[in-house]
C-alpha cells in the first residue's frame, strides 16, 4: 500500500497520475472508433506530424500545443483532402503527409542540437513534465471528446459500421469523418507529453482491442475501453515511477500486457466451450451443444426438423 501512497506526496506525480487517468480514458474512447474505422495508422501519423509542429512552434516561441495543434490539424485536413478523391489510399497519404512533417521537426532538432535542445519527453513521454496548464488542456480535450462522442454517437456508429449505407440513410458521412479526424487530432496532441509521439498509436489501440476481446456490444466496448484505458494510464504511471522508465513505455507495456491476458482468457474460454460441446457418438466426433432433453432422447439440437436421426448412443461420452 505504501508503494502506492508514497509517490502521491509529490505534486508532479499527482499531476502525472491525473493526466494519465484522463489520457487513458480519452484514448480508450477514441481508440474504439480508430480501430473500427481502420484508422490505427492515422493516430500514429498524426502524432508524428504534431511533433514536427511542436518543434517548429518552439523555435517560433509559440506554445507547445499551438505548434503541435496547427500542424496536427493541417495534417488531418490534408489527409482527408488527398484521400477524398479515392485516387490515393489512406496509408499512402499518411506516409507522405505526416512523415514529411515529422522530418521537418527532426531537421530543426538536428540543426539545434548544438544548443542542447531535447525533445525526448515529446518522443517518449515524461511524467516530470506535466504542468497545471497541461492538465487544463488534457481535461478540456477529454471533456470535448466525451461530449462529441455522446452527441454524435448515432452518426458516428452508423458511418463506422457501414459508411455507404449511412450516406443513403441521410447521414453526412463526410462531415462526420472530418469531425472525427479533428477529435482524433486533439486527442493525439493532448496525449503527446504524457505518452510520447512514438507510443500514442498503441495507447489508442490497446484498450480498444482489449475491450473488443471481452464484449460484442458496441456501447459496452466504448465503456470498457475507457475504463481499461484509465486503469492502464494509472498503472503505467506507477510503473514509470517505480522502475524509473519513460511513462509512455510503461503505459504501452501495461496496455499490451492487459491485451495479452484478455487474449489468453478468450482462448481459454473457447477451449473450455469446445471441451464441453465436443463429444463422440460411436465413431463420430463432433461439437454442438446438447440440452438435457436431447441427451434423454438421443437427439441433438441440430437434428430437430430434419427427419428421424440415425440411431446413436443416448448419452454423451466426453473425449
Amino acid at each position: 500500500m505504501e508503494i502506492l501512497l508514497e509517490p502521491l506526496e509529490y505534486e508532479f506525480f499527482r499531476h502525472a497520475l491525473l493526466a494519465a487517468l484522463m489520457i487513458g480514458a480519452l484514448c480508450g474512447l477514441i481508440g474504439v472508433y480508430v480501430i473500427l474505422r481502420g484508422m490505427s495508422y492515422v493516430g500514429h501519423g498524426l502524432s508524428h506530424a504534431a511533433f514536427g509542429g511542436a518543434v517548429a512552434g518552439f523555435f517560433l516561441n509559440l506554445n507547445f500545443y499551438a505548434g503541435a495543434g496547427v500542424m496536427g490539424l493541417v495534417a488531418a485536413l490534408l489527409i482527408d483532402r488527398i484521400t477524398r478523391s479515392g485516387k490515393v489510399k489512406l496509408d499512402a497519404a499518411i506516409g507522405i503527409v505526416t512523415t514529411a512533417m515529422f522530418a521537418f521537426g527532426v531537421a530543426i532538432i538536428s540543426q539545434a542540437r548544438t544548443s542542447g535542445l531535447s525533445f525526448e519527453a515529446a518522443l517518449f513521454g515524461n511524467i516530470l513534465g506535466i504542468t497545471h496548464g497541461d492538465l487544463v488542456v488534457i481535461g478540456s480535450v477529454t471533456a470535448v471528446n466525451i461530449a462529441a462522442v455522446i452527441l454524435l454517437y448515432r452518426p458516428l456508429l452508423f458511418s463506422t459500421f457501414d459508411n455507404e449505407a449511412a450516406r443513403v440513410f441521410g447521414i453526412r458521412t463526410g462531415a462526420v469523418h472530418l469531425i472525427f479526424s479533428l477529435l482524433l487530432t486533439l486527442s493525439v496532441i493532448a496525449s503527446m507529453n504524457v505518452v510520447g509521439v512514438t507510443m500514442i498509436a498503441a495507447t489508442l489501440i490497446a484498450p480498444a482491442m482489449t475491450a473488443r476481446m471481452i464484449t460484442d456490444s458496441f456501447s459496452r466496448m466504448l465503456l470498457y475501453a475507457c475504463l481499461i484505458g484509465a486503469v492502464t494510464g494509472v498503472a503505467g504511471m506507477y510503473l514509470s515511477y517505480i522502475f524509473n522508465v519513460a511513462s509512455g513505455a510503461a503505459i504501452v507495456l501495461f496496455g499490451a500486457l492487459l491485451f495479452c491476458l484478455a487474449g489468453l482468457a478468450k482462448l481459454a474460454q473457447q477451449k473450455f466451450a469446445l471441451s464441453v460441446t465436443l463429444h463422440r457418438h460411436g465413431d463420430l466426433i463432433h461439437s454442438h451443444p446438447h440440452t438435457e432433453a436431447h441427451l434423454e432422447s438421443g437427439k441433438s439440437a441440430e437434428d430437430e426438423g430434419f427427419g428421424t436421426p440415425k440411431p446413436r448412443e443416448p448419452a454423451r461420452k466426453p473425449l
Binding site: L36, R154, F161, A166, D216, S217, S219, M221
Partner: peptide, 22 residues
C-alpha cells in the same frame, strides 16, 4: 463489427432527429 441485430435495425432510425445514444 461489435453490433447486435437490434443495434443494426436501430441504425435505420439514426436520422430521425434523436440525439441521445440510447
Amino acid at each position: 463489427f461489435p453490433v447486435t441485430v437490434e443495434e443494426v435495425i436501430l441504425m435505420g432510425l439514426y436520422t430521425s432527429g434523436r440525439v441521445w445514444p440510447w
